[in-house]
């Protein structure tokens, strides 16, 4: 089973990289850009067939390693 974890800086946490990306896009003439946030995507392959068990395992992985709950939120997508 394939899964994808999206990790994003939490709302209210300064994201200087996202801010720089937004500024660079504006500098290229993309005037519609009002804001950008930058996070990361982690793709995993799991030897698991039960989606509920996979989701529970992925949540534990996010809590223990993939995301830092002090400054990041995560979203789990199971294919």
């Amino acid at each position: 089973m394939k899964a994808r974890v999206l990790v994003m800086p939490r709302a209210g946490v300064l994201d200087p990289q996202g801010k720089a990306v937004a500024q660079a896009l504006a500098g290229l003439g993309f005037e519609s850009v009002e804001a950008a946030r930058q996070g990361k995507v982690i793709e995993l392959e799991l030897a698991e067939t039960d989606p509920a068990a996979a989701e529970a395992a992925l949540a534990a992985m996010c809590e223990r390693l993939l995301a830092n709950p002090v400054v990041e939120d995560y979203t789990i997508e199971i294919a």
Binding site: V13, L14, P16, Q17, A20, N68, V70, V71
Partner: peptide
Amino acid sequence: LTECGLLPGALLRNAGL
């Protein structure tokens, strides 16, 4: 130390990048 929970908070990318 912040990552292992012995100290609170986190150290983010420098504001000036």
